[in-house]
Design a protein around this nucleic acid. Structure first.
Lengths: 342, 342
DNA sequence: CGCAAAATCCAAAGCGGTTTGAATTTGTTG
DNA sequence: CAACAAATTCAAACCGCTTTGGATTTTGCG
């Protein structure tokens, strides 16, 4: 059904060396020979054994993703979209994606093993923490990697792609302030994640520049799931001095917030405004002519694709220093916001 | 930092053969020798090269998942939970997960290539179609695989794990009928998927046994995303002879339905009942003492874990015919249902 | 035509394991 | 204690590809 290199060489009456070189585009083989080799390879349905190739070259043409099990489920919905984007880029470039689901405690040792055993040529790092040990490890092991997000602001010693979370939350908050809101609640993600810290900073920036004092009583930082939005919003609505607007870190809690608001008989966008960050999750789609939510929007799938491209670039052309991309989120106005007290 | 087999053997003054056998638990090596080998291996931090091993054995200790890009986004949110479950089982058993994201058209050729190149020892098949060519291909190539779902009812020639979708929708519908509902809409998933067909059959079973005539005008089959639930519910509410209950194929359209209902000023569970299938998606969590939705519930993450176990079993102990598991979904009563006209 | 340089091509040695078939040790018996 | 079987161990071949260093052919040019 299928032949190996040796058989191909024999069929051609040529050495394996030359055949191998012809197939891999080396210059020291004549065009005539190359044509013959290519034709015969096609005819005999030759395809090289990846295992043998990996063993011989030490390259694996594989990218590793390690995703932590259990806590931080919050990654999941984002995760599938990111994977879809990255996976497509990998396929296009002829790379495989190796995914490892492990407990948090085994996370680092998994990185180590994947690299030591040469199973991967590069790693994708998700959701960096404030002081992320994975990054240090990867740098020490000299393994190409790209971080989706950033760890510390100042550190440009590695490749990353991030959304300008500070700016986008600053703009979102500013937008609400411009509509007259002055009491704005924050439903942030877990602040061990760097992006969540930046979002809070952006929120505080906007408040400060409008000379509004931040109230820790209406600022939360939890996992970005639907019930979080629901519970906290109920709580906010029940309290005295209720906020007139809420800014959410993800569309999931935003949906929870809407649920709570509607349950109270209020109307989102009229009685209370909501702005959310929107990762453009393919299964929740906040689009249409007038989208449900006013949002700062940046596609996580696109981010996945671009991260993959950057990583492959880094693998295949090392030496060109680490690349960085800071994306600006787009502010789209939907039905969930309106002037205060309208 | 790390040694290979040859160096290990030299350090021990023993042949590679014996070392290899000692490490792999062959019986023809004395316990004394084995101990020495194991100790030295530990000491020298030996770990075998997976590439070399794969080349020599032809086994890859890798499971392939191919996920189609673009259409059927509906797979995504389920997908991440399934992966989490399966991935954990793989890790535990020492298997790698290889994920390939490709266009629908390249799906089959991807299966073929993964198998021909021996990159995988087994494949996981998602979302079987009514007449699924992947199954035929895998059988022809004699590759172990497990299907999450089933294709045709009668066909037990391959391993699968499925939820008894027919029964669960029959029960869900019956539950509504028992509450007095007689006009029940169906928001099904795409009926090219076999599970969706079975759900419809269950729905029709229940209607028939209550002598209610099915109305195609209130039965839909689309991708299970939030906006689908919203749009169709709006449409249903706007029409004449509006249904008193809706049964949904996923919690996403169910959320859309709630949104539409609340927007009309109605109250879910009082004015209109909703039952949904609940895959127990980790980021949407329909739990709590009294869950939001009345649902037939079956964890997709657990399914992923179990599918992985079945697959590994099939790989490591071939010959024992294909296994099948048919899971019964659990009916949990939440706040989204009530007697008709209450 | 002669000869160095350039262009091709090749045999063989890895890469790091597993496994076959034979050799060596050890153990058991008569 | 010799003789033979069982238990261990080993040298070498093999998995399928890349790559080094050298051999062979072609080409260019005086």
């Amino acid at each position: 059904m299928s032949v190996n290199l040796k058989q191909l060489a024999e069929a051609l009456g040529i050495s394996q060396t030359t055949v191998s070189r012809a197939l891999n585009g080396f210059p020291e083989v004549s065009e005539k020979t190359r044509r013959k080799v290519l034709d015969m390879a096609q005819q005999l349905n030759y395809s090289p054994s990846p295992h043998a190739k990996k063993l011989a070259t030490g390259k694996s043409k594989t990218i590793g993703h390690v995703v932590p099990q259990s806590d931080h489920m919050m990654i999941n919905p984002l995760f599938s979209d990111f994977i879809a984007g990255a996976g497509e880029a990998y396929s296009r470039a002829g790379y495989d994606m190796l995914m490892s689901v492990v407990d948090r405690e085994q996370e680092e040792s998994t990185y180590y093993k994947l690299i030591a055993s040469k199973r991967v040529d590069g790693m994708m790092v998700h959701a960096p923490l404030v002081n992320d040990t994975r990054i240090a490890l990867l740098q020490k092991l000299d393994m190409p990697f790209v971080v989706h997000g950033r760890s510390a602001d100042e550190d440009n010693s590695y490749a990353w792609l991030d959304v300008n979370n500070r700016r986008s939350f600053q703009r979102a908050t500013r937008f609400l302030i411009d509509l007259g809101h002055r009491r704005i609640a924050l439903l942030n993600g877990l602040e061990s994640m760097t992006f969540a810290r930046r979002r809070r900073a952006g929120y505080l920036d906007a408040l400060a520049s409008a000379e509004i004092e931040a109230d820790p009583g209406i600022m939360f930082a939890e996992e970005m799931i639907e019930p979080y939005g629901y519970e906290r919003t109920r709580q906010l609505l029940a309290g005295k001095d209720r906020p007139t607007a809420i800014i959410c870190s993800s569309i999931l809690p935003a949906m929870g917030a809407v649920r709570a608001i509607q349950q109270t008989g209020l109307v989102p966008g009229r009685d209370i405004s909501i702005v959310t960050h929107d990762d453009v999750l393919s299964f929740l789609s906040n689009s249409g002519n007038i989208p449900l939510f006013t949002a700062v929007r940046s596609s996580i799938k696109e981010a996945g694709r671009r991260c993959a491209e950057l990583l492959i670039e880094a693998i295949e052309h090392p030496g060109t220093g680490p690349r960085h991309e800071l994306w600006e989120a787009e502010l789209v106005v939907g039905n969930s916001t309106g002037p205060v007290g309208a």
